[in-house]
Amino acid sequence: MPHQVQTPTSAHTFTQRISASPRGARLARRLVRYHLDGWGVPYGSELSDTVAQIAAELAANAATHGRVPGRDFQLRLLLRADGVRVEVSDTRTECGPPQRPEPPPDEAESGRGLVLVAALAARWGVESRAVGKTVWALVAPPERPDDVSDDVLDEVRGPAHPVPTREP
């Protein structure tokens, strides 16, 4: 049988189902840092810290607001030509995030997750799935090249005149 060559849609992709719990949200953050480091985005770099913070917020929301007993959430991380995309999918369809998150009152102990995501991400949004939803955020490549190796920047930034692509 001949070997089929498939063109990847992303230079690097990681997908993992995780328990919808506070422990699962912490694990999501650690997994993001680990995989980014393996892809050449070092621990402690601006890009790694930003993507990990966004993943932690989206995973915490999935564990808190998107939780369905007995169901996990899914974390997906993609290193693409336009940046790093974080996706967190849960199985709850009737509960979605607000389109324009507003900061909670100063005395509130929660409610800042999506405000942080909106502030840190170049773009973010919500997509419906057959069961549930996916909340995604895109972090643009860093402006400071000393944070990330030249090879990774070339891979993330792509050609000088990129071909427009549709958002998956």
Rank of each mutant, 00 (worst) to 15 (best):
D154F: 04
W136I: 04
P142H: 06
V32N: 04
M1V: 14
T93N: 09
H65T: 07
L36D: 00
E57I: 10
R17G: 14
L120P: 03
Q6A: 06
P164V: 12
V86L: 12
M1Y: 07
V86G: 07
M1H: 13
P103K: 11
S128W: 09
R23I: 04
S45E: 12
Q6Y: 09
R17H: 14
R29H: 13
T91P: 00
V163E: 15
H65F: 15
L58A: 13
V51Y: 01
A81Q: 15
P145Q: 05
S19V: 08
I54K: 02
L36C: 00
P98S: 06
V86S: 06
W136M: 03
V115H: 04
G158Q: 10
A55T: 01
L114D: 08
E94H: 12
R112N: 05
R17D: 15
G66L: 13
T13P: 01
L47G: 02
P164E: 14
P8N: 12
A62H: 05
V163F: 10
T93A: 14
V163C: 09
S10L: 01
A81T: 14
G113L: 10
L114E: 11
R71N: 01
V131K: 08
L58E: 15
S89T: 13
A137R: 00
E57S: 09
G111A: 13
Q4M: 12
E57Y: 12
V156M: 15
A11D: 04
A60T: 14
G113N: 12
A55D: 00
Q74T: 15
D106G: 04
A20C: 08
R26E: 12
S48E: 03
L47Y: 01
R33D: 10
D150A: 14
A28R: 09
S45N: 13
A59E: 02
T9H: 09
G132F: 09
